[in-house]
Amino acid sequence: MTYINLPSNQQAAISDMDETALRAAVRKCLDEERIGPIHGLGLSDCGPYVGTKLHEFQQAIAEYSKAKAHAKRERTRQDALRAGSDLVHAVQQMKGRLETERQEGELYFIEDQIRLPFYLSKRLSVPVSFRWRSSPSADWKYGHLTFVYDFSPQPSYTLPLPKRKPSAAQAARDLEDSLYREWERLKAQALFSMREFFRDGGDGDAVPEVFAVRPSPYGGGLNNFSCNFWQPERPAP
Rank of each mutant, 00 (worst) to 15 (best):
I4A: 02
N5M: 02
S8D: 09
S8N: 07
Q11N: 08
Q11V: 14
A12E: 15
A13V: 00
A13Y: 05
I14Y: 00
S15R: 13
D16L: 08
M17N: 05
D18E: 10
T20C: 06
T20W: 07
V26S: 05
K28L: 10
D31N: 06
E32Y: 12
P37D: 03
H39M: 12
H39Y: 06
H39L: 12
G40M: 09
G40E: 02
L41V: 03
S44W: 04
S44Q: 14
S44L: 11
D45S: 13
D45L: 15
D45M: 07
C46L: 09
G51F: 11
G51S: 09
K53G: 01
Q58V: 11
Q59I: 14
Q59R: 10
Q59N: 12
A60S: 13
Y64S: 08
K66Q: 15
A67T: 13
A80W: 03
A80L: 04
A80N: 03
A83S: 15
G84F: 10
G84E: 09
S85L: 12
S85W: 07
D86E: 15
V88A: 15
A90L: 12
A90N: 09
V91C: 13
V91D: 08
K95S: 09
R102Y: 03
G105L: 10
Y108D: 04
Y108H: 05
F109C: 01
I110K: 01
I110G: 00
P117H: 08
P117M: 15
P117S: 13
Y119N: 07
S121H: 06
K122N: 10
R123M: 12
L124Y: 11
S129C: 11
F130R: 01
R133F: 08
P136C: 06
A138K: 04
A138N: 03
D139I: 09
T146S: 14
V148C: 15
V148G: 00
Y149A: 06
D150W: 12
D150N: 15
F151K: 06
S152Q: 14
P153L: 08
Q154C: 02
Q154W: 06
Q154Y: 04
Y157L: 13
P160E: 11
K163A: 08
R164S: 09
K165C: 03
S167I: 10
A168T: 14
A171N: 05
A171D: 02
R173V: 10
R173T: 05
R173H: 05
D174K: 05
L175R: 07
E176T: 10
L179E: 02
R181Q: 10
E184Y: 03
E184Q: 15
A188Y: 07
Q189K: 04
Q189N: 15
L191V: 03
F198P: 07
F198D: 00
R199M: 06
D200F: 00
G201C: 02
G201I: 01
G202D: 00
G204Y: 09
E209N: 14
V210S: 08
V210R: 09
A212Y: 05
V213K: 03
Y218A: 14
G221Y: 07
G221H: 11
F225P: 00
F225Q: 02
S226A: 08
S226F: 05
C227L: 01
W230D: 00
Q231Y: 05
P232T: 03
R234S: 06
